[in-house]
């Protein structure tokens, strides 16, 4: 890449963000997306030991559900592949067992969300189990995906061509994503995704800005968006370095 790259935030949040990256190839943009989805390790429950389960559901199904509960993932370096953390749950009916009832042995690994229902327990039903969480990648199992709803679109450049002919009816022009209007970035949700709302009575042209991508990233709560993107970029870098070393003659 000879072009200088540049990052600009459109929307920022803890778990959700939208940012513009300029000066990268489509291949790199997709590589980054794939790294966020499949290559950033996160914690998830992988093995469950049931001490008591008098609920209406099989142990195997409950284990699957527990596996899908997002857990916070400790900062890099705290854990390596293969390390485990034990969590336990003990809930007696009547009532619902929630992810918040999981008690972790490590304060760095906690359920990211307290209100994920696991099972509804009736009178005299009880769930008591112990689970081992381990750190793996999204490509091993979807429950280890840190990035969910990760995608990108081309940045759209909108230019006003002139006025609409006098007697022509206004037609809606739907565009989704982020547009660039005189260097200003505007999410299309601001004008209801319809360019005719923003430029009434004008004729406009829309075109993709080459090598400029607007990423939309959401995490499952394992870490912040910042953390996810940084770790994804680091994993790409590590792969590139590995390849470089492997092809040295």
């Amino acid at each position: 890449m000879t072009e200088e790259y540049d990052v600009e935030f459109v929307e920022t949040g803890d778990r959700k963000a939208r940012f513009l990256v300029r000066g990268v190839t489509p291949a790199f943009a997709n590589g980054l997306r794939r790294a966020m989805v499949a290559d950033v390790p996160t914690m998830a429950i992988d093995e469950v030991r049931f001490i008591e389960n008098s609920s209406v559901m099989f142990d195997e199904q409950l284990a699957l559900r527990l596996g899908l509960v997002p857990l916070t993932t400790p900062p890099e370096g705290e854990f390596v592949d293969g390390d485990t953390v034990t969590l336990s749950i003990d809930v007696e009916g009547p009532g619902t067992a929630y992810s918040g009832d999981l008690v972790s042995s490590d304060s760095l690994v906690q359920p990211a969300e307290d209100n994920v229902p696991i099972i509804d327990l009736k009178d005299d039903q009880r769930l008591e189990a112990e689970a081992d969480a381990l750190i793996e990648r999204g490509k091993d199992h979807a429950k280890h995906q840190g990035g969910v709803a990760v995608g990108y679109r081309h940045l759209q450049r909108v230019e006003v061509e002139g006025d609409l002919p006098e007697f022509e009816d206004e037609r809606s022009q739907i565009v989704r994503g982020v547009i660039e209007d005189d260097g200003e970035l505007v999410p299309t949700s601001e004008f209801d995704d319809d360019l005719s709302n923003r430029y009434p009575g004008k004729e406009v042209s829309v075109e993709d800005v080459p090598n400029a991508f607007v990423f939309h990233v959401e995490t499952d709560g394992s870490f912040t968006v910042d953390e996810l993107v940084t770790r994804a970029v680091e994993s790409l870098e590590a792969r590139a370095t590995e390849l470089e070393e492997a092809v040295q003659l």
Binding site: E47, V48, S54, H141
Partner: peptide
């Protein structure tokens, strides 16, 4: 009756 053994299950 369900056995009182601890049952180990993979969450895959």
């Amino acid at each position: 009756e369900r056995s009182r053994d601890v049952k180990e299950v993979d969450a895959h």
